[in-house]
Every structure is written in structure tokens, then in C-alpha cells.
């Protein structure tokens, strides 16, 4: 049986997602036995034009040329897997979406006429149908392996959209929000990283994007309760996944001010307490 043809394509990014694949090292060699790595510029100068069975795409769509490229990749690939935060949301560079591109071009570049950028940095799913998305900045190697091996086995990969908190508790981490008032984004952030920052007793900063069913305004109110201002809450939401819809819309609400009273409420008497 012919080996499946795999390709990896870079768009506007830091290349970190590709490095996550490259640094699988020995496991990458195991993978190379099972597939034909036909196009992977970061890894090999061999560049077969396609078509491909599975194409991994990373980075955001940031230039007119990249719109054409991602459409071409879609046309020549059976399955398209977006990997990383940029591909899923526009990434860190989507911070420019909150400002004015002409200002950046004219104030930071001596010859802006050489730059052909779109006004906004956007996700692949804004331009093409994406079959699977692997979140994270960078994506987790365990999740990458799981997705690759599931697809090769003919199984649908199922990446949970739940909060980081579940993994923290499975791992026995102490909640740094409850015990130390650190403004941890874990309750509204998607799992997959292995709760890396809380393992180091640090607050999560949301680099896997919004969890599937979180309540962002309630966490903003909790951050208020921990002493953060509404402006601070906006800053927490506008980082790596600022352009993912839940964070984007919530940050717009918090620009208008707090979305309710601070949480938790002050200790108070209630009907479930003896008088």
C-alpha cells in the first residue's frame, strides 16, 4: 500500500508550531516510516507539489498572497489540519487587528511600500473549510501525535474543549486563583497544554484559546474581585487568542466597563447558614 502523503505549510508565524513537530525527533522518524513527508520546508529541501492526503498548516493569513496559498493547499489536500493559535485565531499578530494598519506601516517601516499586508491577521477557517484544529501557542506535542496517529488509523481525533482546570485537578495542582489571587485564565481557557503554567504555580495566560463552554464575564468579575480593573481584564483577554470570537467579544464588553459586581461576593449570611 502506498504511504499517505503528508505536507506541512507555513504562513505568517514564528515557525514554533513546525518546531514542535521537528522536535518529536525519534518519534518523527517512526512517523516517517509510515508516511511520505512530501513537503515540509522547515525539515527538508525535498518539495513535492502534491496532491497530499493530509496537510498541516500553521501561521495566520496575513497577506493577500496567503489567501491564495491557503486556498491552493485546500484544493490539493484531502484533509487540512490547522495547528497552533495563529491558524486558529489569527494569533499574537492579530493584536494589530485592534489598531490601524496604516499607522503601523507609516510609523514603523522606512519603506512601507514594500509591505503588502492585509488589514487583519485571521484564522484559516475564515478562508477555507478546515477539517481539524489543534490549538495552542505552541500546540502540545502529545495532542499533535494524537491527531496524526488518529488520522492515520482512520479514527476521528477528539480534542477536548474543556477548561485547563480539569487537568490541574487531575494533576493535583493547587488553584493559584483561590489560594493566591493570581489572575489565572485557566477556567476559561481550553485544555491541552498539560496545565504547564499552574504546574509552576503560575497563572495561565490563555495560550490555548477559549474553552468550549466558559463564562468569560464571570471570570472578569472574579479578576475584579482580585483587584484587577476592567482595563486589566481587557489586557488579559487580548494576548495570543485576542481575535478568537469569545475573547474578542468579551474584551469589547469589558472595554465598556465591568460586567457585574466583583466575585466572589463578600462573606455574608444566607439561608443555608444557621443564625
Amino acid at each position: 500500500m502506498e504511504k499517505p502523503k503528508i505536507s506541512v505549510h507555513k504562513f505568517s508565524s514564528c515557525d514554533g508550531c513546525q518546531v514542535q513537530i521537528l522536535s518529536l525527533e525519534e518519534e518523527l522518524l517512526q512517523l516517517a516510516d509510515r508516511v511520505d513527508i512530501a513537503f515540509f520546508a522547515e525539515a527538508t529541501s525535498r518539495m513535492n507539489p502534491g496532491p497530499y492526503d493530509v496537510s498541516f498548516v500553521e501561521g495566520s493569513v496575513s497577506t493577500p498572497h496567503e489567501i491564495e496559498r491557503i486556498q491552493h493547499v485546500r484544493d490539493i489536500s484531502k484533509v487540512v489540519v490547522s495547528i497552533g493559535a495563529c491558524g486558529q485565531s489569527g494569533g499574537l499578530q492579530a493584536l494589530r487587528n485592534w489598531g490601524d494598519l496604516t499607522y503601523y506601516l507609516n510609523d514603523f517601516y522606512t519603506e512601507p511600500e514594500h509591505i503588502d499586508a492585509l488589514p487583519q491577521s485571521t484564522a484559516f477557517h475564515d478562508h477555507i473549510d478546515v477539517d481539524w484544529e489543534v490549538p495552542g501557542c505552541p500546540p502540545d506535542q502529545g495532542q499533535l501525535k494524537y491527531v496524526i496517529n488518529s488520522l492515520l488509523s482512520g479514527a476521528k481525533p477528539n480534542l477536548p474543549s474543556e477548561a485547563v482546570c480539569l487537568q490541574c485537578k487531575r494533576d493535583g495542582n493547587v488553584c493559584v486563583l483561590v489560594s493566591q489571587e493570581q489572575p489565572c485564565m485557566g477556567p476559561i481557557t481550553r485544555t491541552g497544554c498539560g496545565a504547564l503554567c499552574p504546574h509552576q504555580e503560575r497563572d495561565c495566560y490563555g495560550c490555548f484559546g477559549p474553552q468550549g463552554g466558559g463564562n468569560i464575564d464571570a471570570l472578569g468579575r472574579r479578576f475584579n474581585g482580585a483587584g484587577l480593573t476592567p482595563t486589566d481584564v481587557v489586557s488579559r483577554l487580548r494576548l495570543i487568542y485576542s481575535w478568537a470570537e469569545p475573547f474578542r467579544e468579551a474584551s469589547r464588553r469589558w472595554e465598556q466597563g465591568a460586567q457585574g459586581a466583583p466575585l466572589p461576593p463578600q462573606p455574608h449570611k444566607h439561608g443555608g447558614m444557621r443564625s
Binding site: E162, A163, C165, L166, K169, R170, C175, G186, P187, I188, Q211, G213, G214, N215, D217, A218, L219, R221, R222, G260, L263
Partner: peptide, 13 residues
């Protein structure tokens, strides 16, 4: 529901 984060900490503990 306005206060619940849906983070599942209650379940986990």
C-alpha cells in the same frame, strides 16, 4: 449561571 465559570473545579474536588 451568571456566576458559574463552567470550569468544573467543583466536580474535580
Amino acid at each position: 449561571a451568571e456566576r458559574c465559570l463552567s470550569c468544573a473545579n467543583c466536580v474535580m474536588v
